[in-house]
Amino acid sequence: DTQPYIRNNDGTYAYQGDDTQLNLKVSDTLTLASSDTAKSFMENTVNTGRTQSTAQPMLDEDGKPLPDTGVAKVSAGLVTSSAVFNKSFAAGQPYTLELTSSTQYTLKDVNGKDLTSEIAGNGVFDSTKDGAHSISLRGVSFDINLNFKGVAAADQDAAVKGHTFTLQAKPDTFNASRTPSNTSTAQITGAAVTDAGAYSDSFPSNGAVIKFTSANAYEVYAQPVTDSSKSIAKGTMADGALSAMGVTFDVAGTPAAGDQFVLSNNNHQSQSALDTLSELRKALVIPSETDPAAQQLQRDAINTAIGNLKNASTSIDTARGSIGARLNVVDIQADENSSMSIANDSTVAAIGNTDMASAATQLAFQKSMLEASQLAFVKISQLSLFNQL
Rank of each mutant, 00 (worst) to 15 (best):
E43T: 15
Q104K: 06
A319M: 11
V71S: 04
V225M: 05
A364L: 15
S101Q: 00
K310L: 05
E279L: 00
T106A: 13
S322R: 10
A257I: 01
S243M: 13
A198C: 10
A191S: 01
I144E: 08
A257D: 02
A176V: 05
A72H: 02
R50W: 07
S272V: 01
F212T: 03
Y105W: 05
Q362C: 15
Y95V: 03
F261Y: 09
I332K: 08
V26L: 10
G235W: 07
D36H: 13
S34T: 09
E219S: 12
T45K: 11
F89M: 02
A38F: 15
F386R: 11
T314C: 11
A91E: 10
I316Y: 07
L309D: 00
D239W: 00
S101D: 04
P94E: 11
A233R: 10
Q93A: 11
A90M: 03
P287I: 03
T248F: 04
K129S: 13
L389F: 06
D62E: 06
V193D: 02
T361G: 14
R281V: 00
L370F: 14
I323C: 09
D36V: 15
N47Y: 12
G240H: 09
A252H: 01
T185A: 05
N175K: 00
S136L: 14
K310Q: 13
V247K: 04
L383P: 03
R281T: 01
F165T: 03
L383F: 01
T31S: 08
S270W: 03
V348G: 11
G77M: 02
T128H: 14
Y221G: 06
S228G: 08
S338G: 13
L242Q: 03
R281S: 06
D239R: 07
T116P: 12
S177D: 02
A186L: 01
L30F: 05
A169Q: 01
T189E: 05
T361M: 15
I232N: 09
S384N: 15
L375I: 02
L146R: 08
M340T: 13
N311I: 02
I380V: 12
S346M: 12
A349V: 10
K39I: 14
P65R: 02
A132C: 15
V209F: 04
S127H: 15
T20D: 09
D1Y: 07
T69I: 06
T314Y: 14
